[in-house]
Design a protein around this nucleic acid. Structure first.
Lengths: 364, 364
DNA sequence: ATTCGTTGTGTGTTCGCACACATTTAATAA
DNA sequence: TTATTAAATGTGTGCGAACACACAACGAAT
């Protein structure tokens, strides 16, 4: 049952009780100095005694302070995955507009580290109040972390984690755990011995730590379940830059692996495997992939992809900006790590994860 | 790139553009009358044109209005499921406290319709500003809907839907769709012909429309996929009031259905089936159930339950109160129907749905 | 003795909205 | 015509915090 009529304490009440003016109380609260030591003590004591909490509405109202956040993220025209974070960022911007928050987006070509550096430099020059970024280039990112730390600009990472140079927080998925989850789904759908393919598409595995973790999680599931001998797990890196090379490599794998029953695609390109399997009229291989982008949804709906694991990319963008605001605008504490849930999406529950009416799901 | 310094539109701006005073604009906005028709039109047009949105901070600041909401829900000591909505309600209350919102909880014994009526009556006497309830008794609820409609108290339903007597909104899951989802999971894990059991536990199917819908969805999946001939789907109602009767009935089913491979429990008592299967040392039957309550999690973790479908009960409570506030406090429009996502939960992604640190997932 | 600077303190204004109150305009009755 | 009233519109104030500014007191330097 809720508590009664808890009289709200105002600065005025504090001032009255301490026999000073509101200005003095204000100076004490904000530690602006110019208050006699004994008076300060007295006010501080009463502040704590009456459990004063500032009225956020009033605080926000008065100050016309504008906060400019910067978001550094890949251009979605190169990879549709990045559309969703962008939408999340824009939704957060809209929700926070009345608190004086605006977000400037700095978009780079995800295949060009130099462009990444260029945009990061440009962003830094603007000296924003907070930064949200997906640091897909490790080495190129570190110097900026140093700069931002020096300039005391808090930054939040999403989608890709770099633990060094403490960010304000990281928002994204737990890649290892998501590998475990994929393995569970594979195992559940394929209890009998067979071969399983892990496919990394269009990414240099040496440069993409999160894919390595996915694979580790996937393989470890079977080890933990004492099923290593049941399954023959192979992994490959595919590259779509050459369409014929892509197909040839898959042809080779299918020819040499007759009992292949499942393919786990660690990136968002499961649809390209589905397309290939369709072309080759292969029917008995099941597919699990990532991300609810349009081409994936097409194959999910007609059953060629069994499951998609949703990384909630829109939530990542939204929550990233929101975390910045929580810290900078509302001056609240924020968790350093914010893992978003691993959503198992099938044709049957797709509608609730799909971004139709501009809604998405995030943590409260 | 984000839009520039879009100056926020104030009543003053509207007034200026419409060549009237702020008072007139105010009257138009709040529909207080006493405005000439043509002026009203003009202001309305500009309002829409400039996309005016009231500044919530300023609005809240001025009025020290207190809102009291009432929540009518079953006592969680009878059924652990109801703990989560309660937590959600309390979290929403906390989040909304600074807008003057408080929530009074009216808790009833879910096995006693009279207690339900008693608490509903008590609640109604308090004349709250809004009501959130789970109307588990259809007939007993209708008269209250009428009363509340007369008294113009908006009410929001959660978990159980009653479409008549339009509520402000309904928050919960789509039972039919969730049956479809369960069927998909069953089918995926059991591609070969077998028998499947649908078990309704501790509920009169005649009095629980949502269970019927779950079964319909489940069965229709196989019909839609042209798999009816592959699977022998049987359903049963079990009652735990007699432990021996419960076991005897299950014994009979298992004896007479040798190829039983999957059991779909439509209620939150999958753990009791898991317990039974353990006692009988049955290993090759897979289980799918609902709700992340402790005993279910136990069996999910040790693998006896394959999947749990999460109904996001905490989110239902949270969002229910939040909807009321959106409508009553913030005077925004709210969707009549709010389906929460159907979460597929396994041991591998459980942690993100579990309510550990007081967090839960809801739509933004 | 005056001027200055420093420290401590109080006052007044602003933010956008809601609502009470004041004033103007138009319509109608005497 | 003027008085009376209703309708239409304008003005003013408070909400609580933040912050600019005013001002008093006092010692030090000129």
């Amino acid at each position: 049952m809720s508590s009664g009529k808890k009289a709200v304490v105002r600065i005025k009440d504090i001032a009255l009780k301490a026999k000073v003016s509101t200005g003095t109380v204000d100076r004490v609260i904000h530690n602006r100095g110019r208050v006699a030591e004994d008076v300060k003590e007295r006010v501080l004591k009463i502040l704590k005694e009456l459990n004063y909490e500032p009225n956020i509405m009033a605080r926000m109202l008065g100050s016309k302070k504008q906060y400019v956040f910067a978001a550094l993220l890949p251009d979605h025209s190169y990879d549709a995955f990045w559309m969703a974070p962008k939408l999340g960022i824009e939704k957060a911007e809209q929700d926070l507009r009345q608190y004086g928050v605006s977000v400037e987006q700095y978009v780079f070509n995800p295949h060009d580290p130099q462009d990444y550096v260029k945009m990061a430099t440009k962003l830094t020059k603007k000296n924003p109040d907070g930064i949200l970024l997906s640091p897909i280039y490790y080495n190129e990112t570190l110097p900026f972390f140093e700069k931002w730390n020096e300039a005391k600009i808090p930054f939040v990472l999403f989608n890709t984690q770099i633990a060094e140079y403490d960010p304000l927080s990281y928002i994204g998925q737990d890649s290892y755990q998501s590998g475990l989850l994929a393995a569970k789904l594979v195992h559940y759908g394929q209890p009998n011995p067979c071969s399983i393919l892990i496919a990394h598409i269009d990414e240099e595995i040496s440069n993409a730590q999160h894919l390595v973790k996915k694979e580790q999680g996937f393989r470890n599931y079977f080890i933990q379940q004492n099923l290593s001998h049941h399954y023959n797990i192979i992994s490959t890196e595919l590259n779509r830059s050459s369409q014929s090379g892509f197909i040839k490599k898959l042809d080779e794998i299918l020819e040499s692996t007759l009992d292949l029953k499942q393919i786990f695609v660690t990136t968002s390109q499961a649809y390209d495997i589905a397309k290939y399997l369709n072309q080759r009229h292969v029917k008995n291989i099941k597919l699990i992939g990532y991300d609810l982008i349009a081409p994936n949804l097409y194959y999910l709906e007609n059953g060629d992809i069994s499951f998609l694991i949703n990384q909630n990319p829109k939530g990542q963008g939204y929550w990233g900006i929101y975390q910045l605001a929580e810290h900078i605008v509302f001056k609240k504490e924020v968790p350093i790590l914010k893992y978003l849930p691993l959503d198992v999406v099938t044709n049957e529950n797709l509608n609730y994860f799909r971004d139709e009416k501009g809604s998405t799901f995030v943590e409260i």
